Simulated scan of single mutants.
Amino acid sequence: MPQACLRTEPQHTDLYDKVWLWMEYPRPDARTDTGIDLVARTRVIGEYVSIRCKFYGETPLPWLRAI
Score class of each variant (00 low, 15 high):
5 C>W: 08
65 R>L: 07
5 C>E: 08
61 L>N: 04
15 L>P: 00
33 D>K: 14
35 G>V: 07
59 T>D: 06
47 E>N: 15
47 E>Y: 14
45 I>Y: 11
36 I>W: 06
24 E>R: 11
32 T>G: 10
47 E>L: 06
4 A>N: 04
29 D>Q: 10
4 A>I: 06
32 T>C: 11
10 P>R: 11
3 Q>N: 06
11 Q>R: 15
67 I>C: 08
44 V>L: 09
52 R>L: 07
18 K>G: 02
51 I>Q: 04
32 T>F: 08
21 L>K: 15
45 I>E: 12
35 G>W: 09
14 D>V: 10
60 P>C: 06
43 R>G: 00
4 A>F: 02
38 L>G: 03
19 V>K: 01
29 D>P: 00
33 D>M: 12
4 A>K: 12
59 T>K: 09
53 C>S: 07
21 L>H: 12
61 L>W: 10
14 D>H: 09
17 D>T: 06
24 E>Q: 14
54 K>G: 03
18 K>N: 14
5 C>G: 04
63 W>T: 07
38 L>S: 02
65 R>N: 03
31 R>W: 05
1 M>E: 04
42 T>F: 14
60 P>I: 02
58 E>K: 04
41 R>C: 11
53 C>V: 05
19 V>C: 03
25 Y>P: 02
36 I>N: 03
40 A>T: 07
61 L>R: 07
4 A>R: 13
56 Y>G: 04
2 P>S: 03
44 V>N: 13
52 R>F: 14
39 V>A: 04
35 G>K: 13
23 M>G: 02
39 V>L: 11
45 I>F: 07
53 C>T: 13
22 W>C: 06
15 L>E: 11
66 A>P: 00
15 L>F: 09
3 Q>R: 13
58 E>F: 04
18 K>A: 15
35 G>R: 12
28 P>G: 12
63 W>C: 05
57 G>P: 01
40 A>K: 00
17 D>E: 15
63 W>Y: 13
57 G>A: 01
26 P>G: 08
17 D>K: 07
36 I>Y: 01
29 D>V: 01
62 P>N: 05
15 L>G: 02
10 P>G: 06
27 R>W: 10
21 L>P: 00
52 R>Q: 15
52 R>G: 13
38 L>C: 01
49 V>C: 11
35 G>M: 13
29 D>G: 01
40 A>N: 03
13 T>K: 10
21 L>N: 12
31 R>A: 15
54 K>M: 04
4 A>D: 06
52 R>T: 09
12 H>P: 00
66 A>S: 10
51 I>D: 01
4 A>M: 09
4 A>Y: 05
5 C>R: 10
51 I>E: 03
21 L>W: 10
37 D>R: 03
38 L>N: 06
39 V>G: 01
48 Y>T: 08
3 Q>D: 03
58 E>P: 00
16 Y>L: 04
52 R>P: 02
24 E>P: 00
32 T>S: 12
8 T>F: 03
44 V>Y: 10
16 Y>H: 05
38 L>K: 05
29 D>H: 08
7 R>C: 02
45 I>K: 11
62 P>L: 09
32 T>W: 11
3 Q>L: 05
63 W>K: 12
29 D>K: 04
41 R>P: 05
18 K>Y: 09
36 I>R: 11
46 G>F: 08
17 D>V: 01
23 M>R: 15
29 D>A: 05
52 R>E: 14
19 V>T: 03
4 A>G: 07
50 S>G: 15
